[in-house]
Design a protein around this nucleic acid. Structure first.
Length: 228
DNA sequence: GTGATGATCTTCT
DNA sequence: GAAGATCATCACG
């Protein structure tokens, strides 16, 4: 039982997000995503993230939701950086992004996997994990290794979380720096980008090398890069 | 371990 | 009307 509800470390300021997504994504590795829901607090360390570039970028990123300009769905991305963009995918799931770059430039970072830190019982309940499974080996990994899994585990919904400012101390959704430092990242192509898409090979997916909570196959074929 | 398949619905064309 | 930044489950090796 987690009695101390104080969040660890310090809140990341808006300036952290006010730059290009391909810089923000690797820098977010090792930071802590926190969701407070009533008396419950759930937290996980970000171990995988993908950058999606805004339409002003050269060349533009055809895989990004924002690449055809603002629509009612993606409006959050064109606003101030440091806001949550939550959308529903395949009818049944949600994905959580954080808007980047200054107002009017719609870059963002998709959070793809966390390493659970706090509130694991609540996460398991949110995901409907049975007691037996919750005690089995590798259960923590299956809670949050995937963009929609982590939304389910933290209880992030489009209706209540889209557009939230993650840089405010009283926000239910925050990203904090607790001093944990990641030395380097693995950069690979993004997941789920069709080969008909010109951006299929862009190395904009960043993960913590060797971390068991990273989604997908274990050996990432990508190259090691320093954190920019 | 990998690979195929179905569930399900919002969004934009 | 089609596609989609996905996941659980099942078959098979």
């Amino acid at each position: 039982m987690i009695r101390n509800l104080s969040a660890p470390g310090k809140l990341l300021p808006r300036s952290f997000y006010e730059t290009r997504p391909e810089l923000v994504a690797p820098r977010l590795l090792g930071k802590v995503l926190i969701h407070r829901a009533g008396a419950a607090m759930m937290a996980g360390r970000i171990v995988e993230a993908e950058a999606y570039l805004g339409p002003h970028n050269e060349p533009p990123d055809p895989a990004a939701h924002s690449h055809r300009g603002p629509t009612p769905r993606n409006l959050v991305l064109f606003g101030l950086p440091g806001h949550a963009y939550v959308y529903s995918i395949y009818g049944m799931y949600f994905c959580l992004n954080i808007s980047c770059e200054k107002k009017g430039q719609a870059g963002c970072v998709l959070l793809r996997a966390l390493e659970p830190i706090a509130g694991l019982e609540q996460m398991a309940a949110n995901r409907g994990v049975a007691d037996g499974a919750a005690r089995s080996n590798g259960f923590a990994k299956r809670l949050t290794s995937g963009p929609s899994r982590l939304c389910q585990a933290l209880g992030v919904l489009r209706t209540s979380h889209n557009g939230l400012d993650v840089t405010r101390a009283n926000s239910p959704l925050q990203v904090r720096d607790d001093g944990f430092s990641v030395e380097e990242a693995v950069a690979t192509a993004r997941i789920g980008i069709n080969e008909t898409n010109a951006a299929v090979d862009w190395p904009l997916r960043f993960a913590v090398p060797g971390n068991p909570c990273v989604s997908g196959p274990k050996n990432l074929k990508g190259k090691r890069v320093p954190i920019p």
